[in-house]
Design a protein around this nucleic acid. Sequence first.
DNA 1: CGCGTTTTCGAGAGCGCTCTCGAAAAGTGT
DNA 2: ACACTTTTCGAGAGCGCTCTCGAAAACGCG
Lengths: 330, 330
Amino acid sequence: MRTITMEEIARAAGVSRSHVSLAYRNAYGIKPEVREHILAVGRQLGYRHNRIAAQLAGGSTGTIGVYLQDLHNDLFADIFDGLRDVSEPAGRQLVLAIGHTDGSRDAAALETLLESRVEVIVAAGLMISDRDVFTVLGSTPLVSIARHIDTADSVVSDNAVGAHLAVNHLVELGHRRIAFLANPPTDGYGERRAGYLATMRQHELNPQIIEGSYSRRECASIIAAMLLSANTPTAIFAHNDQAALGAMDAIISAGLKPGVDISVVGYDNTGQSQSPSAALTTIDIHGVELGRMAGESVLIRLGNPEAPRTSHHVEPTLVVRATTGPPVRG
Amino acid sequence: MRTITMEEIARAAGVSRSHVSLAYRNAYGIKPEVREHILAVGRQLGYRHNRIAAQLAGGSTGTIGVYLQDLHNDLFADIFDGLRDVSEPAGRQLVLAIGHTDGSRDAAALETLLESRVEVIVAAGLMISDRDVFTVLGSTPLVSIARHIDTADSVVSDNAVGAHLAVNHLVELGHRRIAFLANPPTDGYGERRAGYLATMRQHELNPQIIEGSYSRRECASIIAAMLLSANTPTAIFAHNDQAALGAMDAIISAGLKPGVDISVVGYDNTGQSQSPSAALTTIDIHGVELGRMAGESVLIRLGNPEAPRTSHHVEPTLVVRATTGPPVRG
DNA sequence: CGCGTTTTCGAGAGCGCTCTCGAAAAGTGT
DNA sequence: ACACTTTTCGAGAGCGCTCTCGAAAACGCG
C-alpha cells in the first residue's frame, strides 16, 4: 500500500504542509476549526503519523529508553508499572530493552536504545560494570534503579539496611547459622552481601556465603546440593525472591517445611512471594514506588539536562510471612 | 554535545558519505580494508549509527512490533523468550508495547507500534475485538499468539483440547462438581470456556461458571466469597494460572488444602505454577514454543508479505502436580 | 479608515541517512 | 596493449517530517 503523507493531506484539505504538521502535533498557531478539518481529512485518507520522520526532523525524539533485566522477575514488572504511571500522563514514549540474566547482552541492549536516539535511559538490573555503563552511554543521561552509579541519577533502596533487617529478624528468632544465598558478583551489587556480613559480625556470628545466581532453578539445585551436606544452616537469607523461591523449591522437594525445618528470607517482595502458597518472609523494596520515582527523575532530567544529579532513597521494610520461624535446634 | 554524522567520518576518512553508509551496514561493494578503516575512524570520533535516520531513508525499518498483555504474567515472558530466540539471530529488532490488563489501551498500544513503523506485529493477549484489531492494523501484517484471528497468521494452542484434558483429569479423579473460573468475556477468548462446557456436558455434569478476571488478587477474593457459600464445587478449573493461583490463595487463606480439600487446575504452565510450593496441576501451552513459532511466522511474513496465511498449532498437555486429588465427598 | 500589533498561514531549508546510477579503477582474455 | 567485464567508488536525489521566517490576514484603537 502506498504510504500517504502530509503533503497529500495538505492538498486534499487545501492547506500547507506545515499546517498539517501543526495540526497533528496539536501545536499552537492554528485555528481549532482548521485543525479539526485537517484531522478529519487525514482520518478519511487513512493517514498515520510517521514518528520516524517526525523524530528525525524534530531533532529530538522525546523518548525514554528503559532497560529491564528480566521479564521473568516480577520486580521488574512492578518497576515498569511505576515508570509507566508517571511517563504516560507526561506523554512520553517508553522504548524497552530486555536483558539476559547473565548480563552478556547489556551493552548491546543499551547500544540499541542509544541508536534509537532515546533521550534518557532508565535502567533496572544492569549487570555490567559502572565503567562499561559509562563508556557506552557517553553523554546520554541515565537514571539507575536500585543501584547507585556515580555518573547517574539514582533511585535506590538501602540494601545494607534491608540485609540488616533480614538478618536481625532471623537472629531474633534464635537463628545462629544463617547462610546468605548470594547473587553473582557484579559491580554495585555487593551491598546486600556486605550488609549481611556486617550484621553477622555485629552479632558475632560466622557468615556463610553460598554463591547463587539470578535463576530460580539454579538456586534450587545449589540449595538441594547444600541440603545433603553436613552442618546445614538453620536459615537462608537470599539475595532476592527468585533465589529464595528456588531455595524453597529445594527445601520442599527435600520433604522439609520452610519456616519450620529451615527458615528462608527473600528480598524484593515480588508478587510471587506475596501469595499464601509461598508466603515468603522478605524485604520489601517497594518496586512500584521505585519505578515511579525513577520516572519522576527522568522527567526532571529531560526538562533540564544540566540539573544537578539526584539520588533518592526508598526505605526497605521487613515483611514477615510464613517462611521464618524459630530454629529446630538452637 | 554536537551530534556527529556520517559526513564528518567521510571527510576524516577521506571517502564519500555513501561509503561510510555501506561500511556501517556492512553491505556488499566495499573493500574490507576500507571498511575497517572507516569503522575505526568512526569509533575514534565517537560516532553512533542513527537508526532513526537510517529507517527513514531506507524506506523500511525491518522492525518487529511485539504486543504483550501483561508483564506480571510469566506466560508472556516465556513467549518473549521464544520470540527473541528466533528474532535475534535473524538480526531483527523487537519493539515492545505492553498492554493494561483491562485491555483499555490495546488500540493505543498497537497505534504506537504502527507509528514507529514496525513492519509486522506479533501480539499475545490482545483483548480488543477482531474487528477493532483489523481496523487499527489496516494492512500491517499480524501474527497472533494463542488466539485465532481470521485476518492474521496465528500460532495457537487448541484451548478446547486443553480444557477437555483438564476436566477429564478431574472427572477421572472422581469429581462431579467442577467449576470454571472464567476469564472476562472478550472476543476470541471463549474457547476454554466452551471446551469446559462441552466436556462437562459430555460427562453429563452440571457446569458452574464463576466469572473471574486476569488479576490474581481479584480471583482470590472472588473465590474467597464463593468458599463461604453453600454447595461449593469440589474442584476449580481456572482459565489461567494467575487465576488458579488466586484461587489457591483464597483456599489456603481459608485454611483448606488444595489438592486435598479442593482441587485446582490452572492453564498455561507458567513458571509460577511449576514451583514445588505452588505445585499447580495445569495445562501446558508451551509458551516458549509458541513464541518461537510466532517468530518464525513473522520472519516468513517479512520475507514475503503475500505468502498465504498460516495457522500453527501447539498441542496442549496436562501436567499433573499436587493441587489435584480425589474429592473429599463423592 | 489608517496604523501598529497579533495571529494565521506558506515556502523552503534541512534532519542524517540510503540508494540509484554513472564514472573510475581494477581485473581478464587475446 | 586493447576492448571488455567486474568491482569499487562518489555525486545527488530524496525519505516524511519539523521549524524558521517572512508574508498575509485579522484585530484593536484613536
